[in-house]
Deep mutational scan, measured.
Amino acid sequence: NQESVVAAQLIPINTALTLVMMTTRVVSPTGIPAEDIPRLISMQVNQVVPMGTTLMPDMVKGYA
């Protein structure tokens, strides 16, 4: 089963992602794949992401 990127903390809107903000977990439905974490660093979220929420492609500016 593929791991997806999950918020390790509350991420406010327009925050640039850092490694410490993200963790990985096997979730359903699947979100952004864990191997894309290096690509996500410094990208901004376009909404508030509560802790434990799976990051979906449409939540990250410039990802999709």
Rank of each mutant, 00 (worst) to 15 (best):
Y63F: 13
Q44E: 09
V45K: 00
P50Y: 06
L17G: 00
L17K: 00
A16T: 07
Q9I: 04
R39M: 11
S42K: 08
V60C: 04
I37F: 05
A7V: 03
L40I: 08
T54D: 01
N1K: 03
T15G: 04
N1V: 15
V27G: 04
A64V: 11
V27T: 13
E35I: 08
T18M: 03
S42D: 06
L10Y: 09
D58Y: 12
Y63T: 06
S28D: 15
N46G: 15
D58E: 14
D58N: 15
V48R: 08
V27Y: 03
Q47S: 08
T30I: 11
I32F: 07
V49C: 15
P38L: 04
V6A: 07
G31S: 03
M22I: 13
Q47H: 14
T53P: 02
V49G: 00
S28R: 02
E3L: 04
P50M: 14
T23G: 15
G52E: 12
P29A: 10
I32N: 01
R39L: 11
G52P: 01
N14P: 01
T18V: 05
T24Q: 12
A64P: 11
A8G: 06
A7M: 03
I37S: 06
V20A: 08
T53H: 07
V26D: 15
D36S: 14
I32P: 01
T30V: 15
P50Q: 14
A8S: 12
A7P: 01
M51W: 04
G52Q: 13
N14E: 09
M51F: 08
V27F: 02
P38R: 07
L19Y: 13
Y63W: 15
Q47K: 15
Y63P: 06
T54Y: 02
E3R: 03
K61V: 09
T18F: 03
Q44F: 07
M56G: 13
G31D: 01
I37T: 06
S42V: 02
L40R: 00
R39N: 08
M21R: 04
P12A: 10
V20R: 07
K61G: 08
S28N: 09
T15E: 05
Y63I: 06
S42I: 02
V6C: 06
M21A: 11
S4T: 07
D58M: 14
P12R: 11
N1C: 12
T53E: 11
V60T: 02
D36Y: 12
M51Y: 07
V20T: 10
P57M: 13
M43Y: 12
T24S: 07
R39W: 05
S4C: 09
S42G: 14
Q47L: 09
V45A: 07
P12Y: 04
Q44R: 09
L55C: 02
S42F: 05
